[in-house]
Structures are given as structure tokens and as C-alpha cells.
């Protein structure tokens, strides 16, 4: 006798979360590439410096992407207080006993793929941890980036940012630059793991996480739902 499969439609990611995610994903990609080039500039052909503006253009792109990233981040920050339950910081940071049990579950399922894979209305548990660090890193890159940026701007406001923004870094601009630079590699490693896991889930579980991030909805088989996930958030 076949069991009836019950499907649940979840709506974990509000529009602002989705917009901010894709703007961030795009701008961080641009920032990584342009940032890498700023730190390791490609040697250009000899010629009259006034005709070429290669480095200038790269930096320009970096700054444009930086503004997009900042906007997206601020939007996400705000939405974490007012948005749907799954997009709230309270949920993101709810690292209680059940959460750790789920995290262990997830790890075991990765280590031993024969184990069943559980699904959630919102983020996967390990991913939550990663996102918290990603957001910290984003905040830090924005902070350090704007301190460096301000150091080359000479209006009173920017001078203020440059002078006082340097204080937490021990009044040491080069230190800020080093930290800003090293961040690149944090993002690079994160993106590889992140995209892999997203694709992995899609293939292994045929989940619709990506669609959820794109269109907002995902469809979950009730029996795949992790133990204790509350049903009331079902859309």
C-alpha cells in the first residue's frame, strides 16, 4: 500500500531578502574580482599614462559595487527585524538545543550520504552559522572599505570618517588595508562551499532552494521535514 506524499509550500524568503541576496551575490563577485586586481594589478603596456585608465576603471567598478553591496546589506539588516520569521535575525541566531541537533544531523548526512537528509522551512542549520559570519564579514568589509575610501576623500564628512573610523584599527591605515585584503579569501572560500552545497541539495534532494531564493517559494515533502520544524509557518 503506497503512502500518500504530503507537500508543503513554504515561503521563507521575502522579496527584500531575495533582492538583497542577489545584489550581494553579484556585487561581492565584482568586488572580489576588482579587489584582487587592485591588490595584484596586471601590468599594462607602456604608453602615455594619460591615455590609459585601467587601474582607475577597476577601482571605479570596485566602488560602484561597494555602494550596491552596502545598500543590499542595509536592506537585509533592516529586514531582519521586520520581515518573515525565516528572515529574522532572531531566527538566524536561534542556536538552541534543537538547532544543534539539526546541525549534527546535517553533518552526519554529509559525511554519510546514506543517512536521510532533512529539510527546513528556512535556512539549513550549518548554513545559518556560515551566514552569520558572512554578514559579519560583509559588515567588516564595508567598514574597512569605507575607511580606506574616506582616506582619499577630502570633504569634512569623509575626513571625519577617515579619522575616527581608523580608531578601532589602532590608527593604522595599512592594517585596515591588510584586513580588507585578507577578507577576499574568506569570501572566495565561502562562495565555493555555499554554491556547492546549494547545488548539492538541489541534486541530492531535488529541493527547490534556488527557486526559493529566486521566486520565494519552495515545496517540501512533509516527511522530509526535520523533526520539530513548526508547521504554522507554512504559507
Amino acid at each position: 500500500m503506497k503512502r500518500i506524499t504530503e507537500f508543503i509550500t513554504a515561503h521563507p524568503y521575502d522579496l527584500p531578502v531575495r533582492i538583497s541576496h542577489w545584489v550581494m551575490a553579484f556585487s561581492i563577485s565584482v568586488l572580489m574580482i576588482t579587489g584582487y586586481l587592485i591588490g595584484n594589478p596586471p601590468f599594462s603596456q607602456p604608453g602615455d599614462a594619460s591615455d590609459i585608465f585601467l587601474m582607475g576603471t577597476i577601482r571605479y567598478l570596485h566602488f560602484v559595487a561597494a555602494y550596491f553591496l552596502t545598500a543590499a546589506f542595509l536592506l537585509r539588516l533592516y529586514w531582519g527585524f521586520v520581515g518573515s520569521r525565516e528572515s529574522r535575525w532572531s531566527e538566524m541566531l536561534r542556536w538552541d538545543g534543537r538547532f544543534w541537533k539539526h546541525a549534527l544531523d546535517e553533518i552526519l548526512a554529509l559525511v554519510w550520504p546514506v543517512r536521510p537528509w532533512r529539510l527546513y522551512f528556512g535556512h539549513f542549520p550549518i548554513a545559518k552559522i556560515a551566514y552569520v559570519f558572512v554578514y559579519l564579514a560583509v559588515a567588516f568589509s564595508i567598514l574597512s572599505g569605507f575607511v580606506i575610501y574616506a582616506s582619499a576623500q577630502y570633504s569634512p564628512l569623509w575626513r571625519f570618517v577617515a579619522e575616527w573610523g581608523l580608531k578601532p584599527f589602532g590608527d593604522n591605515l595599512n592594517w585596515v588595508r591588510y584586513l580588507h585584503h585578507w577578507l577576499l579569501w574568506f569570501f572566495a572560500v565561502f562562495v565555493v562551499i555555499h554554491v556547492y552545497l546549494v547545488v548539492y541539495m538541489a541534486v541530492r534532494m531535488m529541493t527547490s532552494e534556488v527557486e526559493a531564493m529566486l521566486g520565494g517559494y519552495k515545496i517540501i515533502r512533509r516527511e522530509d521535514l526535520a523533526e520539530g520544524e513548526e508547521v504554522e509557518s507554512v504559507a
Partner: peptide
């Protein structure tokens, strides 16, 4: 900053 008043700055912007 030195960099913002440097005479070699055009070469920086050009990537030379």
C-alpha cells in the same frame, strides 16, 4: 595622503 598628491599617480591609475 602621499598617494593623492603623488606625481606618479597617473601611472597608478593607468596600471603602469
Amino acid at each position: 595622503k602621499i598617494h593623492d598628491t603623488c606625481e606618479r599617480r597617473p601611472h597608478y591609475d593607468a596600471g603602469q
